[in-house]
């Protein structure tokens, strides 16, 4: 039975697509047949982060409208076995995603894949609602910042009232909190909400903390999900998230400021 996982947040720019690409790649690297779907119709970007933007021929909406077969639209990842990408349409609007259409595609994918990752668009409009509707689990991507935390809480309310599992009175969507762009130095200085604060306010289990890292921009520049960069802190943190998602019990890392050398300790960063 395939698991459908939505990566969502409410707020834009918090790292949903970065997270979708890394978690999908991480699951595939562990040998699980995984597909990642871009639900951001009109503003697709998952293809760029996955480095397959020049291989897009057909898209999600083409498949829904019967203009292409699913296998024609799916892009097999060149680096990672077991991984496919279903890109969003760049030209249609979000209304092109119908309940019936999305359900049909998900059912078809469920035959071939173990995990279906749905990369939600920002906001709480149609595209975001479609991305979360069929979810079994949700990864709530949140920055330690007031507007992001508030929007995450809003999305949690929607998951609990408007998802298929809520509407059909099934077991609720399993929620996971993923805090991204965490900066332990700023937390120590009292300039940023700490992990316990965010956990306490949102009151859902924490699946991981991704530190603010230069490797994330580098990864998107290159079109290689940051999880592949096992040297980097963010890459390691995403690897931990994938392992925890698969049931491993691993302590959280990168919560404390990096140890500094003597000179740095004396003079620090200015500002």
């Amino acid at each position: 039975m395939a698991r459908i996982i939505v990566v969502t947040s409410g707020k834009g720019g918090v790292g949903k697509t970065t997270t979708s690409s890394s978690i999908a790649t991480g699951l595939a690297l562990k040998g699980h047949r995984t597909v990642v779907i871009d639900f951001d119709v009109g503003l697709r970007n998952l293809d760029l982060l996955m480095g397959c933007e020049r291989r897009v021929v057909y898209d999600f909406v083409n498949v829904i409208n019967g203009e292409a077969e699913l296998h024609q639209a799916l892009i097999r990842d060149k680096r990672t076995e077991n991984l496919s990408i279903l890109p969003a349409s760049q030209t249609r609007d979000k209304e092109a995603l119908t309940h019936e259409g999305v359900e049909k595609v998900l059912n078809q994918l469920a035959k071939d894949f173990e995990y279906i990752i749905c990369d939600s668009p920002a906001g709480i409009e149609h595209g975001a609602l479609m991305a979360l509707y069929f979810a079994d689990e949700a990864i709530i991507t949140t920055n330690p910042e007031v507007s992001s935390v508030r929007d995450s809480d809003r999305i949690l309310g929607i998951l609990q009232s408007k998802s298929r599992r809520a509407v059909e009175n099934l077991e609720p969507v399993k929620e996971h909190l993923l805090v991204t762009r965490y900066n332990p130095d700023r937390v120590t200085r009292g300039e940023m909400l700490n992990i316990q604060d965010v956990e306490e306010i949102l009151a859902i289990p924490l699946i991981g903390v991704i530190p603010e890292s230069t490797s994330v921009l580098k990864a998107s520049n290159q079109g290689v999900p940051v999880v592949c960069n096992t040297e980097s802190d963010a890459g390691q943190a995403y690897n931990d998230v994938v392992a925890r998602f698969l049931g491993e019990d691993i302590p959280h890392r990168f919560l404390e400021p990096a140890k500094k050398g003597f000179l740095q300790r004396m003079f620090g960063g200015i500002g």
Binding site: E145, V146, V149, R150, G190, E191, M192, L193, D197, I201
Partner: peptide, 15 residues
């Protein structure tokens, strides 16, 4: 200077 504490307090109320 501890703006994180202010953020937490405001968030708890609004949420």
């Amino acid at each position: 200077d501890n703006s994180a504490a202010i953020a937490k307090e405001r968030l708890q109320i609004i949420v």
